[in-house]
Amino acid sequence: MPEVTIHVNGQSHTAEIEARTLLSTFLREDLRLTGTHIGCDTSQCGACAVHVDGVLVKSCAVLAMDVDGAAVTTIEGIAAPDGTLSPVQQAFKDHHGLQCGFCTPGMIMAATALLAETAKPSEAQVRHYLEGNLCRCTGYHNIVKAILAASGQAV
């Protein structure tokens, strides 16, 4: 089997994998990083969102082989090593930006990517950016509020 090396959350992982292995499968089954969720497996829901070399992607629609050598950040790499939540995570907690929590890893990854691109997004920009992340609980209101709060804007 071919070998792949992917740097995940600052740590380098080399593994022999089948070429058809999805990045989401590699993260969850080879590395046991199960914070990356599989909601739909049809690239609609965004629960599997991670960052590859700093940009947001859906890990269920990317082959692990295709990101050989890349730096991947998953939800497990978002908080500080001592467990201190990132500003986005803290805002989701403070503003009740989740109910069941299933979509939350993808939401946090999308929101973090958005704020890296646009430091102070408008509400419309937040909603546009979240088009690829589905939440079936909250109606998005508190998610949007949390992201605006994380950007330092009054909500």
Partner: peptide
């Protein structure tokens, strides 16, 4: 097109 994650790939 699609959403931001799709547009990145």
């Amino acid at each position: 097109i699609g959403d931001p994650a799709v547009r990145h790939r």
